[in-house]
């Protein structure tokens, strides 16, 4: 009985169950790759120039993202789109949208290149970040990326994010009768006749892709 009630206790305290093994510093170091986007805490040793970044980018990134980050096919653009964010067709890119530079290091380091993620050296990642910032006209040609310089780069869109959820931002009522004028009920948009919907019967529809 005592054992049973002990097992069910929620706030039993550290080490109560005693399962698993203490994580060693070496184990933690192998996986501890995360970088804080805002202040760059976690950025590793190393540095990279724009020239070196252009070489690495041409070999590792340009096939999908284009030589200057202009994008290939449906792969993401990494540049452009300044002053489009309030428009009808916004083009968010690293240059026009991303708020923090260390996030760029973190993401490239953990997930890129798509076909061989996490294979670039820290120096190469720093260099690619410098090159991307340069073709977005955010840093000058002599910029060197490292753990001190990256957090200091101010992205143009940095102050346009709010990190507190303002919802609910609608106030619909549970009206049951005569809620709108029947004459005002108008279809303004229909999916009918648009050639966008894959078939939902038969084999998977590749739509010619």
């Amino acid at each position: 009985m005592l054992l049973l009630s002990g097992f069910a206790a929620d706030a039993a305290g550290p080490g109560y169950f005693g399962y698993g093994k203490p994580a060693t510093p070496a184990e933690i170091a192998g996986w501890n790759i995360d970088v804080h986007g805002q202040d760059g805490v976690g950025l590793p040793d190393g540095k990279g120039t724009i020239d070196h970044g252009a070489d690495v980018f041409a070999q590792q990134c340009a096939a999908c993202h284009g030589t200057f980050g202009e994008g290939e096919g449906r792969y993401p653009k990494l540049m452009g789109g300044e002053s489009t964010l309030k428009g009808d067709r916004p083009e968010p890119s690293v240059g026009s949208y991303w708020p923090y530079v260390p996030t760029l290091f973190d993401y490239i380091n953990r997930a890129m290149p798509l076909s061989a993620p996490h294979t670039l050296s820290a120096d190469d990642v720093y260099a690619v970040v410098a090159y991307i910032l340069n073709f977005n006209n955010i840093v000058p040609a002599n910029f060197v990326a490292d753990r001190d310089s990256l957090p200091k780069v101010k992205m143009p869109n940095r102050n346009n994010f709010t990190w507190k959820d303002p919802r609910p931002d609608t106030a619909a009522k549970e009206c049951m009768k005569d809620c709108v004028d029947p004459k005002a009920v108008k279809i303004i948009s229909s999916a009918e006749g648009k050639d966008l919907t894959p078939k939902t019967t038969g084999p998977l529809d590749t739509m010619g892709n």
Binding site: D34, H36, G37, P90, W98, P99, T103, A111
Partner: peptide
């Protein structure tokens, strides 16, 4: 502090 990872800055944010 939050990390501000790519999936919570570049993506999964609403313009």
């Amino acid at each position: 502090e939050p990390w501000f990872s790519r999936e919570e800055t570049s993506k999964y944010t609403e313009l």
